[in-house]
């Protein structure tokens, strides 16, 4: 009897936000890269005075590769707007929003750090979560979950008398080598 084919468990949608009408209470706008700063400034003038968040999503199968997502809030009318801006994968860059909202500072630094997207005009664009000398951008989809293999720091080898007696030397050391080492420490002649 043929076994039933189980469907692949990973998702197949290449551009999920484009597949569905909005289901939350935010108005959604898709903005071209060239217009994003002007549109943000316009929305701020309209009363969207809070830049709630700037996030990014990586869609490697899609052109443009990245989505930078702005969440804006209008306090007077209690309205939300979500701006999605596509950014190409090759040397990704975007104008900064720090001149409009101070709060964009860390959010943009985080996107730079974890996605490698540059924000032109940002006053202090450097890594924020990862160490300064880190290579790669961890939240990209092609970055492995466990990160690059790194050398383990060498473990100190202790020659314990009890280890020697039990015949269980630490890795890489023979029993004879340990016995010689202990004898050397004690000032005994190892040949005895």
């Amino acid at each position: 009897m043929p076994s039933t084919q189980t469907p692949p468990l990973t998702g197949t949608a290449i551009d999920p936000p484009a597949l569905r009408p909005p289901i939350d209470d935010a108005a959604i706008e898709r903005i071209e890269l060239a217009d994003v700063h002007a549109r943000l400034a316009e929305l701020k003038r309209e009363g969207f005075t809070l830049l709630l968040d700037v996030g990014a999503v990586d869609y490697p199968q899609r052109t443009p590769r990245f989505d930078v997502v702005y969440h804006l809030l209008n306090l007077r009318k209690t309205q939300r707007v979500r701006l999605l801006c596509g950014v190409q994968g090759n040397e990704p860059k975007l104008p900064t929003a720090t001149d409009l909202w101070k709060s964009a500072d860390w959010a943009e630094r985080e996107i730079y750090d974890l996605f490698g997207i540059n924000f032109e005009g940002h006053p202090d664009l450097r890594r924020i979560q990862m160490p300064n000398d880190w290579e790669g951008h961890p939240l990209r989809k092609d970055y492995p979950l466990r990160g690059p293999a790194r050398e383990r720091s060498p473990r100190p080898v202790f020659a314990l008398k009890s280890n020697v007696q039990a015949g269980t030397p630490p890795s890489g050391r023979t029993l004879e080598a340990l016995q010689r080492q202990i004898a050397g420490v004690r000032g005994e002649d190892p040949s005895k």
Partner: peptide, 24 residues
């Protein structure tokens, strides 16, 4: 598949999650 932004009032302010699903 789809994307959604959901916020709640956490103890520190607006806590939000922007969740994207590709159907998996």
């Amino acid at each position: 598949p789809g994307d959604v932004y959901q916020a709640v009032e956490g103890p520190r302010g607006e806590l939000g999650y922007y969740v994207v699903s590709d159907g998996g």
